[in-house]
C-alpha cells in the first residue's frame, strides 16, 4: 500500500481534481496505473515523458499524470507525437488513444506511424465502443454486437488491431487486458523500451456503454469475461478450438531504428561527407 501511495504522490497531479471522470467499473483507471508503474519501473524522469492523448474517455488520462501532457484533437494524437519525437528524440513519447481514436478517425495516422516506425509508443485502450459520446459502434465493435448506431447488431467486421499493425510494419505489437494487470505492466514497459513504433492494445471494459447493451449483467462480469476468454499467445497457438478465445502477449518484435534515429544518422553522414570534401 505504501508503494502505491508513493507512486500516487510522485506521478499524479496534485492540482488536478480527483476522482477520475471514469464511470464505475471502467477499466481505464487500471491502464492509467499500469502506465505509471511501467514508467516508474523503467526509471524515466517525469520531465522526459510526454503523454499525447486523443479525444474520448482515454484522452482524459493525460490530465491526471504529472508528465508533459498534450490532449490533442480526435484521432490526431500520433501526428502530434510524431512532431514531438522528431523535434526532440530524447523524449519518451507515449500516445494514449481509444479504439475510435486510433483505428477509425486516426486509422490513417496509425498505419503510417507504424510504417515509418517513428519512435512512439501507442497505447490503445480498446473498449469496443465510443464511450464518451454515449455508445456508438467503433471499428473494433465485434460483428453482431449492439450499440446506439447499430441497434440491430453490427453488420461490419471489426479490425484485428494486432494483424493490422503487424502488416503496417510496426517494431512491436502486443495486447493485454485490465484483468491481467501484471502482464500489462510488463508489456507496456517492453513497448516503451523498444526502438521504433510500438503498439500496446489494452482491452478495457466499458460496462456503461457496451456491457449493458450486450448481455453483461455487471462490470465484474466483463472482467470475468476477460479472464475466461484471454490467454497467452503461446497457449493460444496450441489450442485446437480457438472459438471465443483471444491471445494476449507480444506478437511482433522487430529490430529497427526509429525514424528519428535514421534521420539523425542521415544528417551525420551528410555532415561527414561535407567535412571530408572541404
Amino acid at each position: 500500500m505504501a508503494e502505491i501511495t508513493q507512486l500516487i504522490h510522485q506521478y499524479l497531479r496534485h492540482n488536478k481534481k480527483f476522482p477520475l471522470v471514469f464511470c464505475p467499473g471502467c477499466g481505464h483507471g487500471i491502464v492509467l496505473g499500469s502506465l505509471v508503474r511501467s514508467v516508474h519501473a523503467l526509471g524515466l524522469a517525469k520531465d522526459d515523458v510526454v503523454i499525447v492523448a486523443g479525444i474520448g474517455c482515454s484522452g482524459r488520462i493525460a490530465a491526471y499524470v504529472d508528465f508533459n501532457t498534450v490532449h490533442t484533437t480526435h484521432g490526431r494524437a500520433l501526428t502530434v507525437a510524431t512532431g514531438i519525437k522528431m523535434a526532440n528524440p530524447k523524449l519518451t513519447v507515449i500516445a494514449v488513444m481509444g479504439d475510435g481514436d486510433a483505428f477509425s478517425i486516426g486509422g490513417n495516422h496509425l498505419i503510417h506511424a507504424a510504417r515509418r516506425n517513428i519512435g512512439v509508443t501507442a497505447l490503445v485502450l480498446n473498449n469496443f465502443i465510443y464511450g464518451m459520446t454515449g455508445g456508438q459502434c467503433s471499428s473494433t465493435t465485434p460483428e453482431g454486437a449492439y450499440s446506439h448506431t447499430c441497434p440491430q447488431g453490427q453488420l461490419e467486421s471489426a479490425f484485428d488491431i494486432v494483424e493490422l499493425t503487424r502488416a503496417a510494419g510496426a517494431a512491436g505489437v502486443s495486447r493485454g487486458t485490465v484483468y491481467h494487470v501484471k502482464e500489462l505492466d510488463a508489456l507496456m514497459a517492453e513497448a516503451i523500451s523498444r526502438p521504433g513504433f510500438n503498439l500496446v492494445e489494452a482491452l478495457t471494459p466499458c460496462f456503461t456503454q457496451y456491457g449493458r447493451g450486450n448481455g453483461f449483467k455487471s462490470a465484474v462480469e466483463m472482467f470475468k469475461w476477460l479472464k475466461s476468454s484471454c490467454l497467452s499467445v503461446e497457449r493460444y497457438e496450441k489450442l485446437e478450438d480457438r472459438t471465443g478465445k483471444l491471445p494476449i502477449g507480444t506478437f511482433v518484435r522487430r529490430d529497427v531504428d526509429g525514424l528519428e534515429t535514421r534521420w539523425a544518422n542521415m544528417r551525420q553522414a551528410l555532415a561527414a561527407k561535407k567535412g571530408g570534401a572541404a
Partner: peptide, 15 residues
C-alpha cells in the same frame, strides 16, 4: 491533417 499535427508537436517541443 497529419502535417499540421506534426508541426504543432514540433512547436510544443520548442521548434
Amino acid at each position: 491533417i497529419a502535417s499540421m499535427g506534426a508541426v504543432i508537436g514540433a512547436s510544443l517541443a520548442g521548434r
